[in-house]
Computed example of a mutant assay.
Amino acid sequence: PHDLARARALAPLLDPSPYPTRTDVDAVVLDFDGTQTDDRVLIDSDGREIVAVHRGDGLGIAALRRAGLPVLILSTEQNPVVAARARKLQVPVLHGIDRKDLALKQWCEEQSVAPDRVLYVGNDVNDLACFGLAGWPVAVANAHDSVRAAARAVTTNPGGSGAIREIAAWLLGPTLTVPTDVSATPTK
């Protein structure tokens, strides 16, 4: 643990940019609960779950797709709300996944994307295995302490409050347009 703490203290000296840019990333993989939501769930009297999402996050995801970045929602929850949100965003979803790390690895192989070129967004301990695979593990501001500690970057916005929009701005700029230096570069 002491060596890890030292390594984290030295990392900013070797990695001058604390946030990735479009040239650093070939795909974006998003957890759902706690990253696209505030991690709360409302349950009605019939047992149906309801969550709130941030419209700015949807705008950010649409911009990432327009920029040619493959985007995937990867969730342990087997819930119709996850699938419904993915449909609305026109993003593929893998949900009800027990081993997210294995699913991420397989998806990367299918997409011909190197895991070290993946930005993975998570918030809780079940995301840590994926953090070990992804080149850009990102935690939302309100993530579990161990997840923030393992992340390469942490958003200023909490999950469900524009964190995904913030990440899209890291990659595409605040106007969410593809920078001209990478727009001609084909993505995988």
Rank of each mutant, 00 (worst) to 15 (best):
V178L: 06
L171K: 00
D145M: 06
D127G: 01
A150N: 09
S17V: 02
V25K: 01
L94H: 10
G34V: 02
A143N: 07
T177Y: 05
V71C: 04
G56C: 09
V140K: 04
N79R: 15
Q106K: 14
V82S: 04
G160N: 02
Y120V: 04
Q90R: 13
K105M: 13
T37F: 03
A168G: 11
G34N: 03
P92H: 05
A168F: 07
A139E: 02
A163R: 06
A149N: 10
L172Y: 08
V182I: 10
E49Q: 09
R87P: 02
G160S: 05
S146A: 10
G56P: 04
P158A: 10
D124H: 11
D31T: 10
L74H: 05
R65H: 09
T177N: 10
V91F: 07
E49N: 11
G56L: 10
D3S: 06
P18S: 13
D39T: 03
T155M: 02
R40S: 14
V41S: 00
D101H: 09
S45T: 15
L72C: 00
G160V: 05
V53D: 00
G135Y: 05
H54V: 08
R65F: 03
L128V: 13
L94V: 09
A86C: 12
N123H: 04
A149R: 13
S45H: 15
P70D: 07
I43N: 03
G173L: 02
G47I: 11
L102A: 14
D26Q: 14
C130W: 07
S183Y: 06
T37M: 02
T187E: 04
P80L: 03
A52Q: 07
A67G: 01
L69P: 05
N142R: 10
D33C: 04
A86G: 03
P80A: 08
P18T: 01
V81A: 12
L128H: 12
R165F: 04
D145W: 12
R55H: 13
I164F: 06
A86N: 09
R99M: 08
V29R: 03
V41Q: 02
S161G: 11
P12E: 02
R22K: 05
L10T: 09
Y19K: 15
T180M: 08
S75N: 06
R22P: 06
T21H: 12
D46C: 13
V51T: 13
A114K: 09
P115N: 09
I97S: 03
Q106H: 12
D44H: 15
L64V: 02
G122Y: 11
R117S: 12
D46T: 15
A84F: 00
P16S: 14
Q90M: 09
Q90D: 15
C130V: 04
R85P: 04
R87W: 14
A62S: 12
D124F: 02
A168P: 12
V25Y: 07
L94I: 02
D39W: 10
L4F: 11
L69E: 00
T177Q: 15
A63Y: 01
S75C: 08
I97K: 00
V182Y: 12
G68W: 04
P1K: 14
L14S: 04
T156I: 10
R65I: 05
A103T: 03
P137F: 01
S112D: 06
L119R: 05
W170H: 05
L133D: 03
E166N: 08
V25P: 01
A139V: 07
V51E: 00
P18R: 05
N123D: 15
G173Y: 01
C108E: 07
A84D: 13
